[in-house]
């Protein structure tokens, strides 16, 4: 069970949070101008890597805020948490 440092509330237990999939996938501003393939790329394609992965998390039983997390999927070490719209502070 992770300890997650919510950027708004501080360190809380994982059970207060919900994972929300890969981060930094921006919804296209003009979806109607995309081909089926381009739209499918946005809609369906997600990374599943062993190593540092950038994820969205929601402090669902706390401040309800969404934020980003860089987590090493091989050992669950959290490398960084940062707010929505911010660039990842680690590689």
């Amino acid at each position: 069970m992770f300890l997650i440092n919510c950027p708004f509330c501080g360190e809380r237990e994982q059970s207060e949070f919900k994972a929300g999939g890969e981060a930094h996938i921006v919804r296209p501003k003009q979806p109607t101008e995309l081909s089926d393939d381009e739209w499918a790329e946005y809609l369906f394609m997600r990374k599943n890597i062993k190593g540092v992965q950038f994820e969205r998390w929601n402090h669902i039983h706390g401040c309800r805020k969404w934020f980003n997390m860089a987590r090493d999927t091989s050992n669950d070490q959290i490398k960084a948490v940062y707010k929505m719209g911010e660039k990842p502070p680690v590689k």
Partner: peptide
């Protein structure tokens, strides 16, 4: 949850 998600992130 879904509405909050769009509001906060998109």
């Amino acid at each position: 949850g879904k509405l909050e998600d769009y509001l906060q992130t998109e």
